[in-house]
Design a protein around this nucleic acid. Sequence first.
DNA 1: GTTGTCCCTGAATCTCCAA
DNA 2: GTTGGAGATTCAGGGACAA
Lengths: 382, 382
Amino acid sequence: MGVVETTKTRALRRAKPVAAPRELAPALPLGEILDGDCVEAMRRLPDASIDLVFADPPYNLQLGGDLNRPDGSHVDAVTDDWDRFDSFKAYDDFTRAWLTEAKRVLKPDGALWVIGSYHNIFRVGAILQDLGFWILNDVVWRKANPMPNFRGTRFTNAHETLIWASQGEKAKYHFNYRAMKTLNDELQMRSDWVLPICGGQERLKEGGHKVHPTQKPEALLYRVLLATTERGDVVLDPFFGTGTTGAVARRLGREWIGCEREGGYRQAALKRIAKELPLDESALTTMQSRKTAPKVAFGALVENGYIAPGTQVFDKKRRWTATVRADGSLAYEKQVGSIHGLGKDLQGAPSCNGWTFWHYEVDGEVKPIDAARQLYLLATED
Amino acid sequence: MGVVETTKTRALRRAKPVAAPRELAPALPLGEILDGDCVEAMRRLPDASIDLVFADPPYNLQLGGDLNRPDGSHVDAVTDDWDRFDSFKAYDDFTRAWLTEAKRVLKPDGALWVIGSYHNIFRVGAILQDLGFWILNDVVWRKANPMPNFRGTRFTNAHETLIWASQGEKAKYHFNYRAMKTLNDELQMRSDWVLPICGGQERLKEGGHKVHPTQKPEALLYRVLLATTERGDVVLDPFFGTGTTGAVARRLGREWIGCEREGGYRQAALKRIAKELPLDESALTTMQSRKTAPKVAFGALVENGYIAPGTQVFDKKRRWTATVRADGSLAYEKQVGSIHGLGKDLQGAPSCNGWTFWHYEVDGEVKPIDAARQLYLLATED
DNA sequence: GTTGTCCCTGAATCTCCAA
DNA sequence: GTTGGAGATTCAGGGACAA
């Protein structure tokens, strides 16, 4: 077992040139959504060709009748055929089949993420252990705004579980420890992540109705991909849906491949991903060493979309204009640092409050980045 | 399936008199720690005799010392050269054995809690589903102060997972919804609980060393028992350790039975529990949900003068104003019905809680008619 | 522009009891 | 076993619209 830390050597070896990624992997259908059953689709991929599998399989919810809110309104539940299985046995067979293919296509140092709820995650976890995957962490997505339990019969089901696993006990894997620590205010990133559910502008809708019943928030994929892939890595999502994985992969400069049976989802995903703009190089370079680490949770603003990676920030007199990078660090020419550290260095000052020093434009207005922090604090207040 | 709420009837039926609990359940070794292997020990208990099982099973898959096969034979020490199949197989057999006994001794409306980490919880969860247990919630214990990941190779493992399950899909179970809501500042209790790990005064030590490596915090058991048992219920802990379950059960006026092989743990547990003082009756009275309060017919309020016949009642927006009739029915134009039925019909809703839907004026103030019921309940208590 | 209110919605295994 | 009536039950965020 062992972590392959992000090193320049490794980045050079693994990262595919942005200009011509296909030259190094001619057989891979990068940026394509494979039609049909995911097991069959994965069979078309070569062995040991994928860096990361992210899977959001059907949960097998086994819902009973209708459910109404106390105000009488009806809850729009997941009733799709793709979530129905005849028995645990049928679900287990299905799970074993797709996990087996996932294991085959993954590189020896590749990794797997699966997300699920208590309906399915225990079965998935046990089966992936049986297949030889080695669990590295289980991660809890604590929903900031879950649906309540309307009848007062149980605890509010306020979280979902992700499993992160390597190819085996002795297998290598990739973990961007520094980037995670930077993102988490210089504290180690924990196994519980508080993130809002997918709604608002981010939620894909057509004719006023949600396109997909279980669209995942981009912030979740953002953290997964930033934590466990490098630029140019190939990410496979066997249950692509409306393409959250593809959209975030493209934004972060990762290659992606999807599998999806439903034509409607495929169309929506392609349209969505086409609109996504890859971040530029300097925004994507994440922290490599302790020395350059920012000391604040500026990264959380970036992760949650309050400040986009690539945003230009500048001091009030516009003497310096720096670029926001994906992990919340800033880059100015060849200098890199936290919002505080870089501001201090550029001014040659003994210290600097980056929150008030750096500004950005929002809706044509210049504001200190502290304004974004205030918005974030308001939104995440307990 | 269904929640059996705390009713006076049920409390009377279930609760054993504090003075002489054994008279009603002479065969149960209440307040005792059974020696030996937990499966064998549980075999000594009668069918359908236990209200709640709380289990904190061993999960070190590399230690065979805790493993016995279902036939009673001992599993040899697990060493590195064991292949993973044998290791998982042995753990699964062990898990199936104790869960099978747990299911047998539980009453039809009893429930099971298990706590574990990613090493074992997926196997335990899948097996208990296979045995017919019905998962009600998975609950995340989010540790306020987890041990950091010293080597920076993974996410800080900052949580453990609990599974709460009933005897089956259609089985009844007990959930003190109102008590949980009260405990959580009048918001529904969620499936993620933030609690500190066990340390300080609470942590049992002997000669400066902790007595048990995985002693659970009492706050965790407190919440579990308060949420899913009543006073006088019998709680069984098959992996008793140093007796956190017994200590909290005693404090909360629940009966307990433990199983523990290690004499040292048994001694420490008995000593600890003896020091525990049961809370007095008034401290143990928890918030009752409306469901569990004695039922009051709206007609009784009219009959007793809390609402006069002829009173005008209306919804919050005053879309409809109805008249209270002498028998407790409501009349709106040509429609007549109960407080619930008429509210439902007028709104065209699938259902309606008339107590909160209808309002009336009292002393110039608009109040829901539920206010009158509260007054009535106060006046007729005991 | 700002504040307040109303309305809608989200992977949900969501009632009990008598007849 | 089923059926029907009585009765109990919700949190946070976003968008639209009014004041």
